[in-house]
């Protein structure tokens, strides 16, 4: 009995002494700031920053002075908080979101054959580029959905990938994983996107898909800011120039261009400050402003698309955004 007690407690003592000694002898000093930064990060280890885990990113932030903005997953608040820990000022990067540049679901686009293989885009692509007739189309088998660490990808009933922009952090993992290259990162504030990236001739696109870009160039002509240009047989949007007026959305004959659940604003003219100079009615791309010279002008709520060009140009600053904006362009175009 005594021997047993002595032996066991002796062993325990020995083990704890050994551990204590080793812990002192082999102690690895960790910067307390590393822990502080790590606590602030989301800890989902998405890898979008280029480091394999959040803790390694935290170490890079502290030891190599990497900017906390490198973490795409955490928002502005976290970046600010980390910058505070580090005692530096945060320079914020523009938030981006992923957009699937394809609108042709199972209903709208033609198929070449019936695919019955492994339920994965990467596998489907091996079989002559997937079952869709359009070689650029989204296959909707969910490769991106499986890799998304934020559950921001939804496959619609139509067999099309839809990205929940609320949840999307713009980490770009789906962009890398998509075998079709159909996902693109766009500035979060610029809600308009041309949802087609097929460079085939217009007639070909029309045969394969109801909602593809047929290169009619209407959007190029209609854009008041020259933000859309043609790249071969595809209209491409320059997000730098885009002012999110939504004019192209209304005019696109195939409804290829979409504005992600943005509430497009409407403008109104304040009667007491308007001098009736007529500048606004001249520059309005949709002829939504009418009125006689020297008279108070009126905005037609139906025609206005909310490009806000007139607000910038009005010398009297008599035009303002109507609040609340009551309709979205997406609804208006349908």
């Amino acid at each position: 009995m005594l021997i047993a007690i002595f032996c066991l407690s002796g062993l325990g003592l020995l083990a704890s002494l050994g551990l204590g000694f080793v812990a002192k002898r082999f102690a690895v000093e960790v910067d307390p700031r590393v822990e502080a930064v790590e606590r602030l990060l989301h800890g989902i280890n998405c890898g979008a920053c280029g480091y394999p885990s959040c803790s390694q990113f935290a170490r890079a932030v502290v030891e190599q002075g990497v900017s906390a903005v490198g973490c795409v997953a955490c928002g502005e608040d976290t970046a600010m908080a980390i910058a505070e820990v580090m005692g530096v000022e945060a320079v914020l990067a523009e938030k981006k979101v992923a957009v699937v540049l394809c609108k042709g679901g199972r209903g709208e686009s033609a198929t070449k054959f019936s695919y019955r293989g492994v339920e994965d885009c990467k596998a489907a692509v091996i079989v002559s580029g997937g079952d869709k007739a359009c070689p650029y189309g989204c296959l909707g088998l969910g490769t991106c959905k499986r890799v998304c660490p934020f559950d921001a990808v939804v496959i619609s009933e139509n067999g099309l990938t839809v990205i929940d922009t609320e949840r999307c952090t713009g980490c770009g993992i789906c962009v890398k994983e998509c075998p079709k290259g159909v996902i693109q990162l766009v500035p979060a504030g610029k809600e308009v996107s041309i949802l087609c990236h097929s460079t085939e001739k217009g007639a070909e696109v029309r045969k394969k898909c109801e909602v593809g870009c047929i290169a009619c160039e209407t959007c190029v002509r209609v854009c008041p800011f020259d933000a859309i240009f043609m790249e071969g047989s595809l209209a491409v949007l320059d997000h730098e120039r885009c002012r999110v007026c939504g004019l192209c959305i209304v005019r696109c004959p195939t409804h290829t261009i979409e504005g992600r659940d943005r509430v497009f604003p409407r403008v109104e003219i304040m009667a007491d400050t308007c001098s009736g100079c007529g500048i606004c009615s001249m520059i309005c791309p949709v002829n939504a402003i009418e009125g006689e010279k020297k008279e108070v002008h009126q905005v037609s709520g139906e025609r206005c698309v909310g490009c806000l060009l007139c607000i910038d140009r009005c010398p009297k600053e008599a035009i303002r955004i109507k609040a609340p904006a009551d309709s979205t362009l997406g609804v208006a175009s349908q």
Partner: peptide
């Protein structure tokens, strides 16, 4: 007891 402390020990030494 031995295994648990051994694993701890190994972890610290490797670190």
């Amino acid at each position: 007891l031995v295994i648990a402390s051994l694993v701890q020990l190994v972890e610290m030494v490797i670190q």
